[in-house]
Nucleic acid binder design. Structure first.
Lengths: 188, 188
DNA sequence: GTCTATAATAGGATAGAC
DNA sequence: GTCTATCCTATTATAGAC
């Protein structure tokens, strides 16, 4: 096996997986070293500013992938219901059916919130804005659209935490399944 | 000021607040010492087994308070809608309108999950069971009741994480407000 | 770019005086 | 029950050889 030769992006993704599982404070360089297959020295070669730089790059990675897998499908010009469907499918893939934690959520609750609060809030807000647009396109009144867009993000976050807390992915699948109907239900 | 004399329960609650904010791994004895006003030595006097014992007692504290503030209102014998209302109000108080994190959620994502996974899952499951009963009492069919009870917990968890991620408590209040109608909506 | 060694620090935990 | 001092370990981070 001729050393699979990981790209920098591969490494960043692997580091992100460690942060997801153990939070920021809970992730030691030893774990990161093992997960990436890189020795400590190599890690500092790639990331001279250490753990904090790793965190920054992981967030950059997340931002581009949220854009591609979650935001782009929402912003397309198909029917609103189809776009929402594409979005929930994107989420399903993104979090591997609930087995992967949300990095943003993990960071918020584990020491990353103080350090990366701006990035976290920014990504969440972008997502909410895209959802508002979809709901508006579907004819949902502005106030309701804002409210429901917020609760969509709430459900995704909650489903990931709860699935992990209960060690049961079904709850994640179901919450996701119910989401489009919930968002597009007639206003009353 | 004659040293307000904290009871053991007060101390445990204060420690819980530290865990909430910083997660398990993120909470150092220095933080705990400052939050409680007790020196390291005193902490070990009260908790000879150290941080892990603190974690255990915090979970015990949570269990009794979840019981009193969240489960008891749900289990009463009033109308289902009233019981749900009492529950959401309990949650609102419990988390101080979204400014306090969920300890279970924080633990899941910050090193506590490995140590206290059983306690976390147990508390969540109790809550879901109580919710199922309420929904059944309201005439919701069993399958739907299970599903919705799960999603109620999902919403609460998600609202707390998201409120913190966005640093915006409004999203928590709204999610909570919408919850009873969502749970009791006609099955379709 | 990776290895070995090592510094420097923080964190958890203990001992003994009072 | 609290204080001071201390130990041990893990962790972050750096230096220098190859």
């Amino acid at each position: 096996m001729p050393a699979p030769k990981k790209s920098r992006e591969d490494v960043v993704e692997l580091i992100g997986d460690v942060f997801r599982r153990h939070g920021y404070d809970g992730s030691s360089l030893a774990m990161i070293s093992e997960a990436t297959g890189l020795g400590r020295a190599s890690l500092y070669h790639y990331f001279p500013e250490g753990k904090e730089q790793m965190g920054r790059e992981v967030f950059a990675w997340i931002a581009t992938h949220v854009q591609r897998d979650l935001l782009d499908p929402l912003i397309g010009d198909g029917a609103p219901a189809d776009r929402l469907q594409a979005w929930t499918q994107g989420i399903h893939r993104f979090y591997e059916g609930g087995s992967k934690n949300c990095l943003l959520g993990a960071m918020v609750l584990s020491g990353g919130g103080d350090r990366y609060g701006q990035e976290i809030a920014g990504t969440l807000r972008e997502l909410i804005r895209a959802l508002i647009r979809v709901l508006r396109d579907a004819g949902v009144p502005a106030t309701q659209a804002r409210r429901r867009a917020g609760s969509a993000v709430v459900v995704v976050q909650g489903a990931l935490v709860t699935a992990r807390g209960l060690d049961d992915k079904k709850i994640f699948r179901q919450a996701l399944e119910d989401l489009p109907d919930l968002l597009l239900r007639p206003t009353g």
